[in-house]
């Protein structure tokens, strides 16, 4: 299982969608679950069609993108957490508020003990602009869901205005966050096109969902 947590708007949903598609190229069965109980719009559920066309199972909240403001989780997520026949990807809501929803599953996740818990960080976000501030968010998330982080994803970006220099310049901060937290940097990610093909192949390329406004 792969779990994406982190500060609001650090890119968890984009990563969850792209990472699920990437995993599908490596293993037979992948299921992505949108368990964001915080965010009303711009959700990984927006990418349902693309995921399903590529054979990735999708579980979303019953009321995602509707007018119902109910933070409820569908029962199928309980099944997903227990299942061992599919690689589950959980897109968790932002900050500690979003991670509350994860706490419900911590016992089963720890019992199965086959998970990566990734903290997505964007150092271009004002409340996580320093490693110290990002560490505070990591601790707050840990405190409510009791699931230890296993890796940091450095997803530093300015949306459509992301530059190579911005990403490269953030790697030092990510290393410092790793030192402070004792959690290693799992990988760095950036939208397709920020780096030319072939350059820095270790950087995970993201295809972003397009909106018409």
């Amino acid at each position: 299982m792969t779990v994406f947590c982190g500060h609001y708007g650090s890119g968890k949903s984009s990563l969850a969608v792209n990472y699920s598609l990437y995993l599908k190229s490596l293993c037979d069965s992948v299921t992505m679950a949108d368990v964001d109980i915080v965010n009303p719009y711009f959700r990984s559920a927006d990418s349902r069609k693309e995921l399903e066309e590529n054979g990735v199972g999708v579980i979303t909240l019953p009321y995602a993108n509707t007018n119902v403001d109910l933070p409820s989780l569908p029962s199928s997520i309980y099944g997903l957490v227990e299942r061992a026949d599919t690689h589950a990807v959980l897109d968790v809501g932002g900050d500690d508020r979003g991670a509350y929803a994860l706490g419900r599953f911590t016992d089963s996740i720890l019992r199965e003990n086959d998970f990566e818990m990734l903290c997505v960080v964007n150092f271009a976000r004002p409340l996580t602009s320093t490693p110290e501030d990002a560490l505070e968010v990591m601790r707050e998330i840990n405190a409510v869901c009791a699931l230890p982080f296993t890796g940091i994803v450095n997803n530093t970006n300015l949306g459509s205005q992301t530059t190579k220099e911005l990403v490269l310049g953030s790697e030092e901060k990510a290393a410092e966050l790793a030192r402070l937290s004792g959690v290693p940097v799992a990988f760095t990610s950036a939208a397709k096109g920020v780096f030319p093909d072939g350059e820095r192949p270790d950087i995970f390329r993201l295809t972003l969902h397009k909106y018409y406004f």
């Binding site: 609001y8 708007g9 964007n122 271009a124 976000r125 004002p126 970006n157 300015l158 949306g159 205005q161």
Partner: peptide
């Protein structure tokens, strides 16, 4: 410096 923000957050910080 440019930062990436949600509209609601931008109001608060401004």
């Amino acid at each position: 410096e440019k930062v990436l923000m949600k509209g609601n957050e931008a109001i608060a910080e401004a």
